[in-house]
Design a protein around this nucleic acid. Structure first.
Lengths: 229, 229
DNA sequence: GCACCTGTTGCGCAGGTGTCCAACAGCGAT
DNA sequence: ATCGCTGTTGGACACCTGCGCAACAGGTGC
């Protein structure tokens, strides 16, 4: 194969590993799979990564960091505290994330047995919580809402979002994402002492707003996603 | 090895498979592991299970069904609708479930690639939802609470519980389970138009009640679990 | 022209995998 | 005593795994 500079080759290997991991699963990804996808030899992979675990961890870390960066950027693009929260929910539930969440799910399950992966997964989880907690702290400082425990609230809200994503991906439950957003926002409002519906206003993508309005139900004054019962 | 009647042997294989799955992970469980644990030959396993997938699915199904039975029994031991809901939350968050939830996590991740496992996991998930939904429906019929969409509410509450368990198991976040119960109950109260604190009353185990009271915070009138920020 | 460096190759090794199968052991029926 | 049935054995089969290593290639400095 064509010669590459070390950083390029390293990035290429990580990219190839990521593609394989996504549709074969982390546990089932092999060195030869990665090499074949690049059209190179398996030895080359080991020239850049001491062990298979290192490669898997590096690939997952890159994907996870990229996910976080997208959300962070979307949040920071907004100025008001409420708008920032809306942006957080919208990117977390964005449609393209189904395949990405399967990767997270794999990583969480695998984390119990792979220390490197666990360390990465824990670290990223904390970072995600910090982004949300900072949103909340800023809002509290600006007087937009009240929250006695921003870290705890961020943790609880994230748990809820992950639980919903779990249902969607693991159980293949079709979900109205706009409804998820507004429903989760309802919980967040309770956490932040916001009036009901305060977070359900106009969000980033126009479709989100429209669908949210359509999904609105009289019960508890907030929209609720359904699973086909 | 000693001769067994077919049902006995089948049960023994499933039990052995379960033990291996629990501390090696579903993906890493091999036929020889299972045979070794029983002290028999690998060929015997294949005499009872056509393929490895069949064995894994059968073992997971047994464990999952047992989990569900425990919760169902705890719920049906109570008579009042509110007491039944309390029992549901208490058994879902019971302490011994950490290792069990790791098995669920494995199954969910593996479900994407193993059709038999996915089918089982989906079916059990629906059953769990039905138990909770029936609790809600009974309560509505008895006039204990109001809920326009019992199936949807059950699904949302379960998503939340799974999300919290995910944080606890995958990220190794130590959780005050009693606080989780009361906090989740807070969400449930909103879903069911119950007054705040209605579900936080005396539950099955005495320790739960005591801890819940101790964890109660003035904010929003309900206890909230924290993660170490 | 040469030596050197480094990305790259292709294969070998030792081990582990699911699956299959011929042979064996114990027991009930004949 | 013999036959047949069935639970059980232990190993063969083909394949795949991560990893290591000797050899190669193509460019750079001398």
């Amino acid at each position: 194969m064509a010669r590459m500079t070390p950083p390029e080759r390293r990035a290429a290997i990580v990219a190839a590993a990521l593609e394989v991991m996504l549709h074969k699963g982390i546990a089932a990804t092999t060195v030869r799979d990665v090499a074949d996808r690049m059209g190179t030899s398996s030895g080359l992979v080991h020239h850049y990564f001491a062990s298979m675990d290192d490669l898997l961890a590096a690939a997952f870390e890159q994907a996870a960091t990229a996910d976080l960066a997208v959300t962070t950027a979307a949040v920071e693009a907004q100025t008001g505290p409420v708008e920032r929260l809306r942006a957080f929910f919208a990117t977390y539930a964005r449609a393209e994330q189904d395949w990405a969440f399967q990767l997270w799910l794999d990583a969480w399950a695998e984390a119990a047995r792979r220390p490197t992966l666990r360390e990465t997964s824990q670290r990223l989880n904390v970072k995600w919580q910090q982004v949300l907690a900072q949103c909340i702290r800023d809002g509290v400082a600006a007087g937009a809402f009240v929250c006695p425990d921003p870290d705890g609230a961020a943790w609880r809200i994230l748990s809820l979002l992950d639980g919903l994503a779990l249902q969607s991906v693991a159980h293949r439950v079709p979900i109205d994402r706009a409804a998820v957003i507004t429903w989760s926002a309802g919980f967040a409002e309770a956490e932040l002492a916001l009036p009901a519906g305060a977070l359900a206003g106009p969000a980033g993508p126009a479709s989100v707003t429209a669908a949210a309005a359509a999904a609105a139900t009289p019960a508890a004054g907030r929209a609720a996603p359904r699973r086909p019962g």
